[in-house]
Design a protein around this nucleic acid. Structure first.
Lengths: 125, 125
DNA sequence: CGTCTATGTTGACATACGTCGAACCAGGGC
DNA sequence: GCCCTGGTTCGACGTATGTCAACATAGACG
């Protein structure tokens, strides 16, 4: 077990504020703790309604959307609120109240970190 | 390198065999059907044990691993088999029996498609 | 203050999910 | 043939999850 000096290879081409959550999935096996944290993010996108809500916010003008603009996904309004809360807890969205309406926006760094685990992980095969 | 035509912005820099499952999440809202299919893939990576198993296979030599090599993730062996089946059903892994052992390997195209939904989706913000 | 609209929270319910032990297949040696 | 090892499937159990109706909260506007 030679000592590891190559810590920075975890982040090959990190964007601005990308949090280096975990190395690409092909780099090395995730530890139990890494898997726990990362799985929570993938899990947040693992529900059809949440994924639609997320894409609605992400594709909205300025990456920001009022709840009233994205509430038409086929479930009741409390359910929408529930899913938005889950996405917020996973760190994928942030919310801000401005006057009457609440606006949600995406957290680009987290999304980029997740993407890098998969794209940078495309193996030699 | 085959798709040089720049007609759909759905695939900006697709690798070889990437199935264009869905556009980047910032491109436009996903339809209900798109969300259903895509969420199933994210859901497969939304469990810590499955994520570890997947990274164990992906990081193994040649992107291929025998079940016996990756069974040490803290759960019983039937549970490992159960999770590998889920990953296979989600299209993320394929399995092949060679003699006594069963080998699992990653499906690079699916992984790349998921990554592109997130990386290509990094918004202007 | 009162009321109306926009969101979030609570409680309850049915279903899905992760986990295990035990039983069951598949090959390889003996 | 028999048994042994590697893997999967089955049945059951407890917990988590998605969903809704009902209620609660936050501003805006009179």
């Amino acid at each position: 077990m030679s000592n590891i000096e190559a810590l920075p290879l975890v982040e090959p081409q990190v964007a601005e504020g990308v949090v280096p959550c975990c190395p690409p999935l092909t780099e090395r096996p995730l530890t139990a703790e890494e898997a726990e944290r990362t799985a929570a993010m993938f899990k947040a996108l693992g529900d059809p309604v949440r994924l639609r809500l997320f894409s609605l916010v992400a594709s909205h003008e300025g990456g920001e959307a009022c709840v009233c603009d994205i509430s038409d996904v086929g479930v009741s309004q409390p359910t929408v609120s529930h899913h938005l809360k889950k996405l917020k807890e996973a760190g994928l969205l942030t919310s801000e109240r401005r006057g009457t309406w609440v606006y949600y926006r995406v957290e680009p760094s987290v999304m980029a970190a997740m993407g890098q685990m998969l794209t940078a992980a495309t193996p030699v095969a």
